[in-house]
């Protein structure tokens, strides 16, 4: 019996010819797809990173203000001057606090979304998490400045319900308090947490989503309390997500130079220092050295995380 359709179908032009080409050379497609991003990452990103690194090993002539293109560690030594060290420590403490704050707030939200939200509620979750990202960053920060201001809604509400005492007590705490929330380190912290929260929730939720319910049931089945299950099963399995989120919140806080200018004490952070050094001061080498600090801190952080087994569940 002869079949009316042929065993081999005719080629239908360019699309079929390309399909055949990629089928014969499977790596070719990969190369085509990867070349543009690799060029971008390799040349533009790594190249500028290298240029930055190079700059940080130059120094500035104190009298003429001209960059001396000779290899030296003098600029790095400058980082350890009291005022600069102060900036680094302040930034580091704030980034750590923001990361912990984000993690604490994000976890219940991410856990709910991963474990209980279904259908419509899942859509509401994604919308709720993403919605703040729709408006401009600056608008949000200025909105917060008004919310946190002495004449703002928080002070007003606290007075209304008679909690001014507590608010004033918090503002009186040295180190985090200040004249009003909008001019205190606490205010800076609140705005940072708000602005970076989505970047913590989403990776956490993705990690929690991958933990099957049966694993939590197995833990309970074997006699674990809820707290034990959280500590020994949920947290270790969610850890890669927590670390991914913390990379965002940590590095975004370390590099930000806008929020500390608008909300807070105007004390300088690394981002602001870099901005001022490369702009008004024209001290590119020190700006570069400052910019290297977050990279080094992130590398140390990730190394510790890896040592502690944070990526074992990957």
């Amino acid at each position: 019996m002869t079949s009316p359709t042929p065993a081999i179908l005719p080629e239908r032009g360019l699309a079929d010819r390309l399909t055949a080409l990629f089928w014969r050379h499977p790596r070719l497609l990969l190369a085509v797809l990867l070349t543009p991003p690799l060029l971008w990452l390799g040349v533009v990103y790594l190249g500028s990173l290298f240029a930055l690194l190079l700059q940080s090993f130059y120094s500035i002539d104190e009298f003429s203000g001209v960059v001396k293109e000779e290899f030296t560690l003098k600029t790095y030594a400058e980082l350890f001057r009291a005022q600069n060290l102060d900036i680094i420590i302040r930034t580091l403490v704030m980034s750590a606090a923001v990361t912990i704050g984000c993690a604490l707030i994000a976890f219940p939200i991410a856990y709910y979304a991963a474990r209980f939200a279904r259908g419509k509620w899942k859509a509401v979750f994604y919308l709720g998490v993403m919605l703040p990202l729709w408006s401009s960053y600056l608008v949000k920060v200025y909105a917060w400045k008004l919310i946190l201001a002495k004449e703002g809604i928080i002070t007003w509400a606290a007075e209304g319900v008679g909690l001014s005492m507590i608010l004033n007590a918090i503002l009186a705490i040295p180190g985090i308090g200040g004249n009003s929330l909008s001019t205190s380190p606490l205010g800076t912290f609140i705005v940072f947490v708000y602005v970076w929260l989505p970047y913590m929730i989403l990776p956490m939720q993705a990690a929690l989503e991958r933990v099957p319910t049966s694993m939590l049931e197995a833990s309970a089945d074997l006699g674990a309390s809820r707290a034990q299950t959280f500590r020994t099963v949920i947290l270790p399995l969610a850890m890669p997500g927590v670390i991914a989120g913390s990379i965002f919140t940590f590095s975004l806080t370390m590099g930000d130079y806008i929020i500390p200018q608008i909300v807070g004490t105007s004390a300088r952070f690394i981002g602001l220092a870099v901005y001022q050094l490369q702009g008004t001061a024209g001290n590119i080498p020190l700006a570069a050295a400052f910019a290297v600090v977050p990279i080094v801190i992130m590398l140390i952080y990730l190394t510790i995380a890896k040592r502690k087994g944070a990526f074992d569940a990957l």
Partner: peptide, 20 residues
């Protein structure tokens, strides 16, 4: 009585071994 206090143990269909 919640599951963790029942002296009854389960072999799960997907085994549910802890990967970490």
């Amino acid at each position: 009585i919640p599951p963790n206090r029942r002296n009854v143990n389960t072999v799960f269909q997907d085994y549910a071994l802890f990967p970490h």
